[in-house]
Design a protein around this nucleic acid. Structure first.
Length: 545
RNA sequence: GCCCUCGUAGCUCAAUUGGAUAGAGCAGAUGACUUCUAAUCAUCAGGCUGCAGGUUCGAGUCCUGCCGAGGGCGCCA
């Protein structure tokens, strides 16, 4: 049983006695950064001083008095500090309970929750046009989306990962024209695709000399390459949804019909317009061109109608690059117009990833062919390093990736720091078996002997993990798991260095044996933490390095 | 011009969504392997959180205005 909700409940009850009504979940309770501020600290007195009609420090004093007789588990001491914090110091055995909890729940259940309550969520990400190989930016947001899916699954959501395949429209025709030009040994048309990847495809293409067919053929080939690239960094999709299929199904007409019935569509200069400016968009948008072809927005609205109203997702998360932020307002307006509560659609924007090479920063363009393929980066530094790098920063952070530096530092990459910790644990386990050292049941193990600062630090990291995962989920911020696992690795390496387990001196005497057993379980607890976190961020957990 | 996002150590990024003295890694300096993996550990150095106001017990975080960077403003996607 985690201690946080227990403390929150007790504090809420004490506040009630002081004339302040709060729900336990809203009691401010945090783990202070500085150890002298205690194991836990509440700012409740600061927040509620006004309502209680008392000065913050006075309210804090009364709160502390009540808490001292409120049967706080493992309570060591209380103090009022600073402007009115109540700091709670616990006896170290509260952390030993944590270890029992970690081991009891194990890899399957520790740091899992049912916060999502089975809500059906669709996460759409990558969705890069199949007109060329994925570039590094696609990999960045791809890793983010994939890890978000894993985190949300662990928090009780039913998640479906989807890639929207833009397999129709002018760009596919343009791709076909570029391919045919290549085959004839000519320059691609104005604004066409220049990348080298087209050369190989042009040699292979044996179909008719018709742009649409050639484009469709090429985009299928390119898409299967994209599937492989994604698989190389452990990203897979449950669904590849074709834009062409949306348009061919008549869904666009149906969607337009709904909007028309609401009086939000009108004809202007031969095209059909969506009066989105009435719903917060900066201007109106065309849904169907004068030539009868739907615009991207027309297809996209039909697609989102399909997500919510046909397939019935409770919630949809779209992860776009920041260069698509211009379409967010129209999409939101459209979704609202279709009668879907706008909060059910979350659009996350990934800031741009710019690459620096040879001291020069460059913008990637698929058409100009000067982008850096994700495949190249994976080949250079390996899939685990790519994922960790991508999941190191928040989506909001525009990243500057210096390729020279990344290659140079690939052996210094933090991924090895984390994986090495896991490998060390695996190695200890091998030695333990070799020496035929049995691990006794944890129920019969005296964990009270874990008193070293290193041991307690490791326990603290494990204790906070469930909250980290819950936060990463609620804030759609899987990079928090990365930050945590790096901290766990730091705590583990420190422990490993200072606290021998199988190499304890004085082997044989009862004190050492008891300590070894307790440390074996601590190591097992750490292993569980690494295994869960590494799988959430999609990085392998090596047994040997 | 209008709109969106961002600005934190030399570099790449964090920071418990408003908490107490802003933290890691890399790069730099110095030290530690006869033990379970040194891909590790320890110590030092590094900051007016772009600038100026405001809100309050308290601001890197919220509000306003500048400055700077990126992105968007198509019957492209």
């Amino acid at each position: 049983m985690p201690i946080r909700p227990v403390l929150q409940q007790i504090i809420a009850k004490c506040l009630l006695e002081l004339g302040v009504a709060v729900v336990p979940e809203q009691v401010g309770l945090e783990r202070p950064l500085r150890p002298e501020h205690g194991d836990w600290s509440t700012n409740a007195a600061l927040v509620h001083a006004g309502r209680a009609g008392l000065a913050p420090r006075e309210l804090a004093g009364r709160l502390a008095e009540l808490l001292s007789v409120a049967r706080v588990p493992h309570l060591e001491s209380l103090e009022v500090a600073g402007p009115g914090f109540v700091n709670i110091h616990l006896q170290t055995n509260w952390l030993h309970d944590v270890l029992r909890d970690v081991v009891a729940q194990g890899e399957v259940s520790y740091a899992a929750s049912d916060a999502g309550g089975g809500e059906r969520v669709q996460i759409e990400f990558v969705s890069a046009n199949p007109t060329g190989p994925l570039h590094v930016g696609n990999g960045w947001w791809g890793a983010y989306g994939d890890s978000l899916a894993r985190v949300m699954q662990r928090c009780g959501y039913t998640v479906l990962r989807e890639y929207y395949v833009n397999d129709t429209g002018g760009q596919i025709t343009l791709l076909g024209e570029s391919l045919l030009a290549r085959r004839r040994g000519e320059e691609p048309p104005e604004g066409g695709y220049q990348g080298d990847y087209l050369a190989g495809l042009a040699d292979e293409y044996a179909g008719p000399d018709e742009a649409a067919a050639a484009g469709r053929w090429a985009s299928e080939r390119i898409l299967s390459g994209i599937v492989e690239t994604l698989a190389s960094i452990s990203i897979s999709f449950d669904e590849w949804y074709s834009q062409a299929s949306v348009e061919e199904s008549g869904a666009v007409e149906e969607t337009v019909g709904i909007l028309r019935a609401k009086g939000l569509v009108e004809e202007r200069e031969g095209a059909l317009w969506f009066r989105s400016s009435e719903l917060g968009d900066s201007r109106d948008r065309v849904l169907v061109r004068s030539g009868g072809e739907p615009t991207y927005l027309g297809g996209d609205l039909a697609y989102h109608r399909d997500k919510f109203l046909v397939r019935g997702f409770d919630r949809v998360v779209d992860i776009f690059g920041a260069d698509h932020h211009g379409q967010v307002a129209s999409l939101k307006a459209g979704v609202e117009a279709l009668g879907i509560e706008p909060e059910r659609l979350e659009v996350l924007l990934g800031q741009m990833v710019s690459l620096v090479e040879g001291g020069k920063t460059g913008r990637m363009s698929k058409r100009a062919g000067n982008f850096v393929p994700l495949d190249d980066l994976v080949a250079d530094i390996g899939p685990d390093a790519v994922r960790l790098l991508a999941l190191n920063a928040s989506l909001d952070q525009a990243t500057n990736l210096d390729l020279d530096l990344v290659r140079e530092q690939s052996m210094e990459n933090p991924v090895y720091y984390v994986q090495y910790a896991h490998a060390r644990i695996a190695s200890m386990e091998r030695v333990r078996r070799e020496r035929e050292i049995a691990r006794i049941e944890i129920t019969g193990c005296d964990l009270g002997v874990l008193k070293d600062a290193r041991e307690l630090d490791l326990l603290r990291r494990l204790e906070e993990f469930p909250d980290i995962v819950a936060e990463a989920c609620a804030e759609r911020a899987p990079h928090k798991v990365t930050a945590w696992v790096r901290r766990l690795a730091g705590a583990f390496h420190g422990f490993y260095h200072d606290c021998p387990v199988l190499a304890l001196s004085g082997a044989g005497d009862p004190t050492s044996l008891a300590l070894m057993q307790a440390r074996l379980w601590l190591v097992e607890g750490a292993r569980i933490g690494f295994a869960i976190a590494l799988s959430l961020i999609g990085i392998s957990a090596p047994e040997k390095m």
